[in-house]
């Protein structure tokens, strides 16, 4: 049984989802890569930002 950390789970999820979003939502390879990276940064960035927000609210 696999027990990844919360952050590892977020990163793996973001990589897989970003690859699919990039390929399916854009038409040229260059734009696919750019959109994939954009989605990845948004996925991980929003998870980190929300985590800090919840941490600060809980204190």
């Amino acid at each position: 049984m696999l027990h990844p950390s919360h952050f590892a789970s977020v990163v793996v999820f973001a990589i897989c989802a970003s690859v699919v979003f990039g390929i399916t939502q854009r038409e040229t390879p260059r734009r696919m890569v750019r959109y994939g990276i954009y989605c990845f940064v948004l996925f991980v960035g929003s998870a980190v930002a929300l985590s800090w927000a919840m941490y600060l609210i809980a204190r």
Partner: peptide, 21 residues
Amino acid sequence: GRGALLAVSILGMFVLGIAMQ
């Protein structure tokens, strides 16, 4: 290329989900 990347991403997510019980 697109098919391989999609297959790896989707299969990877599914297999990891199963592996995480």
